[in-house]
Write a protein that binds this DNA or RNA. Structure first.
Lengths: 166, 166, 166, 166
DNA sequence: TATGAATGAGAATTCATTCAT
DNA sequence: GATGAATGAATTCTCATTCAT
């Protein structure tokens, strides 16, 4: 928290005027991120006609949000997992909404005949999220080369979309 | 550490007869897991003739290792990320070896014509590991239903193998 | 450290705002004492014309500093020896400076013909310091009578000065 | 204690068959040393006709006992001070006997006219012991050169005997 | 007698949180 | 609102001591 205060250019105690606890800071950080993702989804996805296009857009977005923000990526992939409470309790409301949104793209695609039907949308959603998180983690802890996340997004989309095709 | 001691049924100090520090306990835990995975790979994979079969076997194995061991899965996906040293320094020797082994399956498959060539083996390996880790995480923190990991493994393999086909 | 905090009337953690470790508390305590001695030496000794007068002043000072401060004397003679690092590493810079300053009084006295020349200034310095420390130790651990250190200083000076006369 | 056991070539627990506690080991170590000194005193000192000769012999003996035994000297000068109980409680019976024996040499010398009478035998004894201990301390923590203690003993005797002369 | 693995009380240290200014 | 020194509970780790073998 002292580091956070320093980074924010305020005194240690000041954080507590805006957040009740460290947990809340992490939750708020995570919430912000997920909200941005959800906002993007409701703004942009409806413009895209097919499920495959929408899934590709989500992948681009999740990695694009972190490109150039290595420290933030580290917080998102590492620090957030240090809060068991966050993972156990908060995971439900917001994070699940995000996973559900991805799962819905998959099930929509299955209904429209764009995706194969023998795959659980929930499992697919977790796999997509996990793959993105895994790529982000090694990127954030490694050399964090510029452009690497973009290339990874394209390749991951290529593989997943063909893999999900009927 | 106190919890670990309690779980092991020994006194707090006893842990320090076998591990030099908390860090070493985590490293050792992670090392054991990765070593089991690497041992499996060198024992079993050579018996399988094609890269796709080997990749499916790896996926089955990584999830199979955790089936029925919910607490261990939680430690592996959550607690281990609490050690920055582990992630930053130890990641290299052992974990990288594991990711490299997966990447090699991919590149072997590309050489034999079983996998498409426009995907970086390294990115593929990270995506595979991340997908598995993400599935494990939500399983461990959720209801951890028996058999769920097995079904997930099959479906993930189905998607990835078709996605990686040339 | 808990005792130190209690004695200082602060919480345990507060000490760590001012000192990095227990070692640093001891070092700082010792440093303060030696610095006071060195400061006295550079302030007062130049005013005294002869080496014998200067040596007597040093003896009076080292014991005078502790008169009435029994607990501090105990810390200085007993607790400080608990830090091997302090004794082995820190001894050099500051403590050696003090011993050297005493040794210099002796060698100056030898040069001016006030002290006999068949005694190593370094050995003499160590003997003087040890004698003072031994007197302090038994005083601090015993009844610590008021005035006892002053009497001891006079007698020790009488003996040493005659002993060092040419 | 583990180090002591290792040095003695026995298991940790074995020490407790011979000593009740760490404190007792230190006490016993110190006791042994002082007993040797006291034994020497009752054996050899009576052979020496004058107080000055006896004081010189004591100084030679105390330093001679440690010559070539650097580790033992370190224990005697450093470790023993780490036991407050040892210093406070044990100091009385045995150590005081030693200091008293030295003080008696001084008072005998005063009675026979060999030593000046304006010096307290007790203070003199403490100063002698402290000077010897200070010389030993810096010797043990420093380079512990062979022969250095012998030279120091001679010089210290020369100074003290002349200083104590009437 | 001897062993040495196990013990657990005690000690140093950290860090999220508070509150007087 | 903002500060940052102070807090103290919690945590890691040590080491003298015990006791089943």
């Amino acid at each position: 928290m002292s580091d956070v205060a320093k980074a924010a250019g305020v005194a240690d105690g000041t954080i507590y005027l805006y957040f009740k606890s460290k947990e809340e800071v992490l939750i708020s950080l995570f919430e912000d991120r997920v909200e941005k993702l959800l906002a993007f989804m409701s703004d942009e996805l409806p413009k895209l006609p097919t499920a495959p296009q929408r899934l590709r857009a989500v992948i681009d977005m999740q990695l694009g949000l972190l490109e150039g923000e290595r420290e933030f990526a580290e917080v998102v992939t590492v620090i957030i997992r240090q809060s068991t409470k966050l993972l156990k309790e908060f995971a439900a409301p917001k994070f699940t909404a995000y996973l559900d949104a991805i799962a819905r793209i998959v099930s929509d695609g299955q209904a429209s005949g764009d995706f194969r039907k023998d795959v659980s949308p929930h499992i697919a959603a977790r796999a997509v999220f996990g793959a993105l998180d895994g790529i982000t983690l090694t990127w954030a802890l490694g050399r964090a080369e510029h452009g690497a996340l973009g290339r990874a997004a394209t390749q991951l989309s290529d593989v997943l979309l063909r893999g999900l095709a009927p």
